[in-house]
């Protein structure tokens, strides 16, 4: 069973101190701890065990021939026992399809990381401008990122594409400015 510890001194919190609304003093460091405990703490740690085959006519798991199949994979249709079944996003997948979906970013609920290309594009459009000349490289790179990653999924949290729009706007303005400066330089009268 999980042992709950004080966040200050790591001393185990006595069971008598659990779920006390007003909190209790840690016997060691004396800080007033609030430990909210839920029924999951009493649950057994092991998962569902697969059932064995009763007769030869029963469908068996694709990965465990000795276990009874309980559900087909929603992706490939293979029969799965309760050990192999992975339920995610309302779908039941086999381990192989789960891995494939994860690799191709089709499982938002299992994603652990996303790159914020809109922030990168905006940074490319703005930061180089602080040193002026690097903007000549930063602006095209920002435009390329905007075009190339426009359809890339953004954060899984609420987020608009405003950074992409701003990056494109700044980059276009910088390129226009660079063109204007270049034109002005070319039009300067040559010193004899």
């Amino acid at each position: 069973m999980t042992t709950l510890c004080c966040g200050g001194c790591s001393w185990p919190i006595p069971v008598e101190s659990w779920n006390r609304e007003e909190g209790v003093r840690c016997p060691v460091c004396g800080e007033k701890i609030v430990a909210l405990v839920f029924p999951a703490i009493a649950r057994a740690r092991s998962g569902a065990q697969p059932e064995g085959l009763v007769s030869e006519t029963e469908a068996s798991c694709f990965y465990h021939p000795g276990s009874r199949a309980v559900v087909p994979c929603d992706e490939c249709g293979r029969f799965l026992c309760s050990l192999c079944e992975i339920e995610i996003d309302g779908r039941r997948l086999c381990p192989k399809c789960f891995e494939n979906s994860l690799a191709s970013n089709r499982l938002e609920a299992a994603e652990t990381q996303r790159t914020m290309y809109d922030t990168i594009a905006l940074a490319l459009a703005t930061f180089p401008l602080l040193l002026f000349w690097p903007a000549i490289i930063g602006a095209p790179a920002a435009l390329y990122t905007v075009v190339r990653r426009w359809r890339a999924p953004l954060s899984i949290l609420p987020r608009t594409r405003i950074r992409f729009y701003l990056a494109a706007l700044f980059a276009a303005a910088e390129l226009a400015g660079a063109g204007f400066i270049l034109r002005a330089i070319l039009r300067l009268p040559r010193v004899q």
Binding site: T2, L4, G7, A35, A40, R114, S155
Partner: peptide, 17 residues
């Protein structure tokens, strides 16, 4: 951005010190 998910059904305790 990095994400960590904790299913509400799996949370055993929350301790504030």
């Amino acid at each position: 951005e990095q994400y960590r998910r904790f299913a509400l059904a799996d949370i055993q305790a929350i301790v504030v010190t």
